[in-house]
Design a binder for these strands. Structure first.
Length: 399
RNA sequence: GGUGGGUUACUCAAGUGGCCAACGAGGGCGGAUUGUAAAUCCGCUGACUACGUCUUCGAAGGUUCGAAUCCUUCACCCACCA
């Protein structure tokens, strides 16, 4: 039983520091039901969760199954600084209302995966604001500049002449201090968080918390391109609130190599099942596309249900295999004689009429499935299905 | 505070008076092929009812027939010195 729990906990992790501690905590839980705390920090700046976040959330959910209580930490104070891993040096200052709004939608999405009854939502503004200048100084004395510069992000930025604000040095310290305040037993985060996570251990020691958190790091999920990490700003993400057909379609568009990565980090299948599947694909018993379809179906089901996921699949096959038009698409009303390029822009299919012209020249634009070549075309009365490329559709009523 | 270097499109990066809407690479988009995979090949990649016009090379002024390029001021970044 304990062994099983540990295997699930270790699954897919990039690195674990102090696994003995985790073993003890889990063992204790099975002996007398004592729970322990698992901390994970979330940035309230981005209200939309994507699959990259769910890797972490799924791991938290695993802990909840085995006696963990999740400390869902909202970094409302630290958000003012911005994690140095983020590229942009300057951050928008969020108002309180923004933060509240973001968090509401954030947690709503998170509870699709987490067990709400075993989750405590905490805000670090609560204790960090009280820390004050004196507290800050004391905190800062725990860290040398040399050590700080060892951190990968900083050394890279320093070497490439990218500015580093002094306040950014405070970020790991403050995050670490959260662990002191919360007396966390375990903290989990992405591999890019290693420095910050370890800081929690160091500070817990310095502040004599009497225990040091174990640290569990999850790999960073690559985005659709398979290279960069999944992030909203790079546009290579799959959002958990996206429509079923979009989630399904996006998963199917990933490369075969990336598919295995997604299987490992996102699928509920056991590791041995995945290994078997991989073998079957390698020996051509199973077509890679089938494997990918199943993955897409599984992920879509997680955020909706089996019925909707199956519908998404059918829709997808109908549109892309049979080249039918989608059953649903955005509709627009336009007035008679509208210029085709303008119509494409108004329908949100093209960013500019210039781009529309180019795409018409390149045979990318269709009206009712027929390719068009006349960029000066005006639409007369009637209903049309406009299409750009393979993926963009809109229904237009001209009257 | 001093000295020097820098700021060009989504990103990196050429361009030091007209041939510049701006080389090249990456990315993105589109076409062919395909399994909306990968790989490959080709095209496009500021806006505008468009063989022309307009806006853009950190910001604002100026010199010039003409400025991304020269001058002035400002802002920001980097390095060295303090």
């Amino acid at each position: 039983m304990i062994q099983e729990a540990l295997e699930e906990i270790v699954r897919g992790t990039a690195e674990i520091i102090d696994i003995e501690r985790i073993e003890k905590l889990v063992t204790k839980y099975y002996e007398d039901g004592t729970t322990y705390t698992v901390k994970a920090g979330f940035d309230p700046t981005a209200p939309d969760l994507h699959l990259g976040h769910t890797v972490l959330l799924q791991k938290l959910a695993t802990f909840q199954k085995f006696g963990g209580r999740v400390q869902f930490l909202i970094g409302d104070f630290t958000a003012m600084i911005g994690d140095p891993t983020g590229k942009s040096a300057t951050r928008k200052v969020l108002t309180k209302e923004d933060i509240v709004k973001n968090i509401t939608s954030y947690t709503q999405q998170a509870f699709k995966i987490l067990d709400e009854s075993k989750t405590d939502i905490v805000y670090n503004n609560e204790w960090l604001e009280k820390l004050g200048a004196a507290g800050m100084l004391q905190l800062a004395s725990n860290l040398t500049v040399a050590r700080m510069l060892e951190r990968d992000d900083f050394s890279k930025r320093y070497a490439s002449n990218t500015p580093i604000a002094v306040s950014e040095f405070m970020y790991p310290l403050l995050q670490g201090y959260d662990s002191v305040h919360l007396k966390s037993d375990i903290e989990i985060g992405g591999t890019d968080q290693k420095f910050n996570l370890l800081m929690g251990r160091q500070l817990q020691k310095a502040y004599e918390v009497k225990k040091q958190q174990a640290v569990l790091m999850m790999p960073i999920l690559e985005g659709l391109d398979g290279v960069q990490k999944m992030s909203k700003s790079l546009g290579n993400y799959i959002g958990v609130t996206e429509a079923p057909k979009d989630i399904y379609g996006k998963v199917l568009s990933i490369s075969d190599a990336l598919m295995w990565r997604y299987y490992e980090l996102l699928s509920g299948k056991s590791l041995s099942e995945i290994a078997q599947l991989k073998e079957d694909v390698a020996s051509r018993t199973v077509h890679p596309k089938t494997a990918k379809e199943n993955l897409a179906l599984e992920i879509t089901t997680r955020f909706y249900n089996e019925e909707l996921a199956t519908l998404a699949k059918e829709e997808f096959n109908s549109v892309f295999k049979a080249k039918n038009i989608p059953t649903q698409m955005a509709e627009f009303e336009m007035s008679e004689g509208i210029w085709i390029c303008q119509a494409l822009v108004d329908a949100g299919l093209e960013p500019s009429t210039s781009q529309a012209r180019r795409d018409i020249k390149q045979n990318a634009v269709r009206i009712d499935q027929e390719k068009i070549s006349d960029e000066k075309l005006n639409l007369s009365l009637g209903e049309y299905i406009l299409q750009v490329g393979k993926k963009r559709f809109a229904k237009v009523k001209v009257k």
